[in-house]
Amino acid sequence: CKVCGDVASGFHYGVHACEGCKGFFRRSIQQNIQYKKCLKNENCSIMRMNRNRCQQCRFKKCLSVGMSR
Rank of each mutant, 00 (worst) to 15 (best):
L39W: 05
V7D: 12
N41H: 04
I46R: 11
K61E: 07
K36I: 06
M67A: 05
M67R: 09
H16W: 13
C57M: 00
Y13I: 03
K60C: 02
R58T: 11
Q31G: 10
F24T: 07
N32D: 10
H16C: 07
Q31I: 04
A8E: 02
I33P: 04
M67T: 01
L39N: 13
K37E: 12
K2M: 08
E42M: 12
D6I: 11
G14R: 02
Q30P: 06
R58I: 02
F25V: 02
C4K: 00
N52K: 04
Q30K: 10
V7R: 13
F59V: 08
I46Q: 08
Q55W: 04
F25D: 03
R53Q: 15
K61T: 04
Q56C: 08
S45T: 10
M47Q: 15
D6R: 01
C18K: 01
R27A: 09
R69G: 14
M47D: 15
C4M: 02
H16E: 14
Q56V: 10
N43R: 11
C54M: 04
R51Q: 11
S64G: 06
M49G: 13
R27T: 12
R26V: 08
M49L: 12
K60I: 15
F59A: 05
C54H: 07
R69W: 15
R58N: 02
Q56S: 15
K36M: 09
L63W: 00
L39H: 10
Q30I: 05
R53L: 14
N52T: 02
R26F: 08
Q55G: 13
C18I: 08
R48S: 12
S28W: 03
F11L: 11
N50R: 08
R27H: 15
E19W: 09
C4L: 00
V65Y: 09
E19L: 01
K36T: 09
K37Q: 11
K40N: 15
I29T: 09
H16Y: 11
F24M: 04
E42L: 01
H16L: 13
K2A: 13
M49K: 14
R26E: 12
N41C: 03
K60V: 09
N50M: 05
R58V: 00
G14M: 02
E42G: 14
Y13S: 05
V3I: 09
R69Y: 11
F25H: 06
Q55F: 04
S45A: 07
K61V: 01
N52R: 02
K37R: 08
C4I: 05
Q30A: 13
R69E: 13
K2I: 08
F25R: 04
I29Y: 01
K36Y: 09
H12P: 01
C62T: 00
Q30L: 12
R51D: 15
V65Q: 03
F59K: 01
K61G: 08
E19C: 00
E19S: 05
Q56G: 09
G14V: 00
K36L: 07
M47E: 15
R69F: 15
R69C: 12
K40C: 04
G5H: 04
R53D: 15
K61L: 07
I46P: 13
K60E: 13
C62P: 01
Y13R: 04
K37L: 07
G14K: 00
I29P: 02
K40G: 14
I29C: 08
K36W: 08
D6W: 00
F25W: 08
F24C: 00
K36Q: 09
M47K: 10
S45G: 11
